[in-house]
Amino acid sequence: MPTALITGITGQDGLYLAELLLAKGYDVHGVIRGQNNPKRELVESLLPDVRLHHGDLTDTSSLLRALRDSAPDEVYNLGAVSFVAYSWENAQLTTDVTAKGVLNMLEAVRLHTGDDPTHIRFYQASSSEMFGKVQETPQHERTLLWPRSPYGVSKVFGHYMTINYRESYGMHASSGILFNHESPRRGPEFVTRKISRAVARIKLGMQDELVMGNLDAERDWGYAGDYVEAMWLMLQQEVADDYVIATGETHSIRDFLDLAFAHVGIADWTPYVRQDPRFMRPAEVDTLVGDASKAREVLGWKPSVTFPELVALMVEADLAAAREGWK
């Protein structure tokens, strides 16, 4: 039975990845920050077979203890301060966790494996936000990185540090440059979930309006459940490498609004949506769309959930949750 250790297991990717690995017969362990973490109960209820370890990406000694106690064959570093808008409000914390945390995890793995650096296969969650002010379209593994937020800058640091440890120490360390991937488990602060949750509540008469920022930003949106499979596939390769994971399609936030409101029978959403400058980014990333041909050719990976299916899935889940809240 292979063993895996996941940081960031309380997030949407961590939950989906843990489910995938358990289904494949893995012994799954997760690193969770703080003894009173409010999301611990969620993990324990959804994933009772996962063993949790206290750890913090800013504390290398705690990561070494988690590695010692779990003895993993694979490490998936998904932990991060991942809300882009928040990264401007607290750039230092974002840097400590999302950038330096990758270095701490890599160093902990290196120290734990000793003379056999390939004993643990390592996955780093890189991000399409690294492309930022895009220099070519679509974006692929060799596209120049030009991040436009403290989060994006931090992800670039972690990405190149992973490459450096692979080249310096021979570690089996891969990075997945994942474009936007969503699900009903996405936090309500993220724009897609903010929309799906508001649409459900507006339909049920529980909310009057949805306040938004830039409606013209375009993203390559996929389903998180598909994307965690790509993570696993990367660590099954004989040679570590970096891969863009994306659908190859771009849609605007207006497109997302169109589909979400149409799903509940509202053809014209303009009376319900108001823009507010407070929700505009200081430096916007206008358009992201990924070229995942390398992942298709090498990993045999392709997305299974379409953009309209993703929007419908999220709205339906939030409708069910809102109705359940009435009971």
Rank of each mutant, 00 (worst) to 15 (best):
T3L: 03
I6S: 11
T7S: 15
T7A: 08
G11D: 05
Q12L: 00
D13G: 12
L15N: 12
L17H: 02
L17V: 02
A18K: 14
A23Q: 09
K24T: 03
G25N: 11
D27I: 07
V28H: 10
V31P: 14
Q35H: 13
P38A: 00
K39H: 09
E41L: 12
E44D: 11
E44M: 06
L46D: 03
V50R: 05
H53E: 07
H53Q: 05
S62F: 15
L63I: 12
L63W: 09
A66P: 10
L67I: 00
D69L: 11
P72H: 13
Y76L: 03
G79Q: 01
A80L: 05
S82I: 07
F83G: 10
A85G: 10
Y86M: 15
S87V: 01
S87M: 04
T94D: 06
D96V: 01
D96E: 06
A99E: 03
G101R: 04
M105E: 00
L106P: 04
E107L: 07
E107I: 01
V109G: 11
V109R: 10
R110P: 08
H112Q: 08
G114K: 15
G114A: 14
D115A: 06
D115I: 02
D116H: 06
H119T: 01
I120S: 09
F122I: 05
Q124V: 02
Q124C: 00
A125P: 03
F131V: 10
K133Q: 09
P147A: 05
R148N: 13
S149F: 13
P150N: 04
P150W: 05
V156R: 08
G158P: 05
M161W: 04
M161N: 02
I163P: 00
I163V: 06
N164T: 03
Y165M: 02
G170P: 09
S175I: 06
G176H: 02
G176K: 01
L178Y: 15
N180K: 10
N180R: 08
N180Y: 15
E182M: 13
P184W: 04
R185A: 08
G187E: 14
E189A: 12
T192K: 13
R193Y: 13
K194P: 07
I195G: 13
S196N: 07
R197Y: 07
V199W: 11
L204G: 08
M206A: 08
D208Q: 06
E209D: 15
V211A: 13
N214F: 14
N214M: 12
D216I: 02
W221R: 08
Y223E: 04
A224Q: 04
A224I: 00
V228A: 03
L233F: 03
Q236V: 00
D241R: 07
V244R: 11
T247E: 02
R254F: 00
D258F: 11
A260T: 14
V264E: 10
T270E: 11
T270S: 05
Y272L: 02
V273S: 06
R274W: 08
E284C: 09
D286G: 04
T287G: 07
V289D: 06
G290F: 12
S293H: 13
K294W: 00
K294C: 03
E297S: 05
V305E: 03
E309V: 01
L310A: 00
E316R: 09
D318F: 14
D318R: 11
L319A: 01
A320C: 02
A320K: 10
G325K: 14
